[in-house]
Simulated scan of single mutants.
Amino acid sequence: MRTFDEFSRATVRRQLRGAVDPRIVEIVRLRCARYHDCRLCASVRVLDAELDDPMAAKIDRYESSDLPDAWKAALRLADAVIMMPGAVGEDLRADVRRHFDDDQISQLLFSIMKWSCQKALVSLRVDIPQEEGTPVTYDRDGHRIIGTAAIRAFQQAG
């Protein structure tokens, strides 16, 4: 568990450095939550992503949505890594590379892996959801802060 916790916190610390637009990281996180049926992850919203509910609702039908092409490429990558990582083909690689550099792709891949590690919690149904739309943020060490404490921490940081 310590190794998993350190991996998770390291991934979040990398996200906080901002190589990828926080809104893209958030849609990838929500896509993973929905695919894995993680009630906790689906119920919270990362504050610095500033992603509203109508935008988040487009994730389920992203291919036919008006989401930006870079967002769609990130979601395609998430789907491929979650569902069949060995089947990532040249077309997807080219699509992702049109929108992201190596550092950003690396951040996206680590994020997808981080948001896909909760399968054991989900299968045991101990992924306790928060009230829908509960704010979440992270401290500089990568620890999650949920609820009103998240709002206070976000305001102090901003």
Rank of each mutant, 00 (worst) to 15 (best):
A73N: 06
V88A: 09
Q118I: 03
I24D: 00
L51I: 07
I105S: 06
L109S: 15
M113R: 02
R9F: 15
V88F: 03
E131P: 13
D53P: 10
E26G: 02
R13D: 14
G89P: 06
F110Q: 11
D91H: 13
L92P: 01
T3D: 07
V46A: 02
Q130A: 14
A73I: 01
T137G: 03
D53S: 07
T148H: 12
A120R: 14
S64G: 15
T3K: 06
V25G: 08
K119P: 00
M55W: 07
M83I: 14
S8V: 06
D48M: 05
E90S: 07
L77M: 14
D127R: 03
T3W: 01
D37W: 01
A80T: 03
S123N: 08
F7G: 10
R17I: 09
P85L: 09
R125V: 10
V136C: 02
K114S: 12
G142Q: 12
T134E: 00
T137K: 05
S116Y: 03
H36T: 01
R23N: 13
A78Q: 09
F7I: 13
S64M: 15
C41N: 05
W115S: 07
W115N: 15
R23F: 08
D5Q: 14
L124R: 11
V12D: 07
L40F: 14
F110H: 09
I105M: 08
M83W: 03
P129L: 11
A120W: 14
K72R: 07
D66W: 07
R14V: 09
R45V: 06
I105V: 14
E6I: 06
Y138W: 12
M55E: 03
P68A: 04
S43G: 07
R76W: 15
R39L: 12
A57R: 12
P85R: 08
D21N: 13
A73H: 05
A150E: 11
M55Q: 06
L108W: 06
D37L: 06
T3H: 07
I146K: 04
L75K: 05
S64I: 15
D141F: 04
A94I: 13
D66V: 08
P85H: 08
